Amino acid sequence: MSATKQHPFYKSLTVAVLLVWTAAVLYPLVWTLFGSLKDNQQFMLGKPWALPKFPLLWSNFSYVWETYGFSGYFLNSAIVAGASTLLSVLLAATTAYILARFAFKGSGTLLNLYLSAMMIPMILGLIPLFFLLNEMHLINKLVGLIIVYTASALPFGIFVLVGFFKTLPRELEEASAIDGAGYNRTFFTVMLPLAKSGLVSVGIMNALNIWNEYIMGTVFINDPSKYTLPVGIAIMQSEMQYRTEWGPLFAGLLLSMIPVIAVYVLFQRQIADGVTAGAVK
């Protein structure tokens, strides 16, 4: 390490920048929490940035959960995110394993085709996807949304997992074949567990993206009983019409963020290590 990087001034500058960045990230979350504990009067008095007054309105959370159907939205998001994540990870793992370990004509082109899909915004395919799902009678069904989310998550998963599978020693597959294991058994019992860090990273990133997705959920689902959380929050605000209930609205936002924050806190190391390791390898 050079002498310049060890200078106290640069260390202090780095710490200061990181502290400012941390404050910029945490402030909206803290402000959302404070807003969820207020009533409309505190917002309308011209002090929306002030601390909430006592008594704190924890009842905003139960109110939005029961009155605006957040329990149903939460369950729909959990079903869609969970099923889409499992399917996308499984399909990406099998595809990435074939592309990484078996050389066949057109394998490179197929891999590039998958990777090129990462550069195409999904919003460009909304209209043809809508007509396709309509023909398949999957509009207003969570199954249709799961299929779309699974397909959209595949390119990123393949990109990361191909790097993992390429680094695994071929001697493991040869030893498994000598023991009499076929391709399926070798993949599921030997190769897949060795790529666990990559699978966890891909699964977490896909789950977070699907949990927060709004546009496709709005276009493909029009049944209020099947809305996901992002769509439910937008509908909740529109239902308030001329009088926005700011406290419950912030409470709803905070409820939708809790799973995302929990995942980032619990799996932040796996997210960083898995994505960088897979990309570098």
Rank of each mutant, 00 (worst) to 15 (best):
V263A: 12
L29M: 14
A50E: 15
E213H: 02
S12L: 14
A16N: 07
G182H: 01
K226M: 13
D39K: 02
M191Q: 08
P121M: 05
P8E: 10
G182S: 01
Y10C: 07
A92H: 02
E173D: 11
L26P: 09
E173Y: 00
V80R: 01
I204L: 14
F102Q: 04
M205P: 03
M240L: 12
G157T: 03
L87H: 08
V275R: 05
W21I: 04
L154S: 06
M119P: 07
F102A: 06
K5R: 14
V162H: 03
A78H: 04
N60A: 05
K141Q: 15
F131I: 03
G157V: 03
Y97I: 00
L90K: 00
A279N: 08
A103T: 10
M191K: 00
F43H: 08
K226A: 12
G278Y: 01
A24F: 10
L132C: 08
T228N: 12
I123T: 13
F70E: 08
Q42M: 06
L199V: 03
F54P: 05
R101H: 03
K5E: 14
L194N: 01
H7P: 05
L110P: 02
P28D: 04
T67H: 14
V143C: 07
L45M: 15
G182P: 00
W246C: 06
P259T: 06
P248R: 04
V89D: 02
L194C: 00
G106L: 09
L99T: 00
T95R: 00
P8T: 08
A277G: 15
L86R: 05
A251E: 10
M136D: 06
L154W: 06
P8Y: 08
G108F: 13
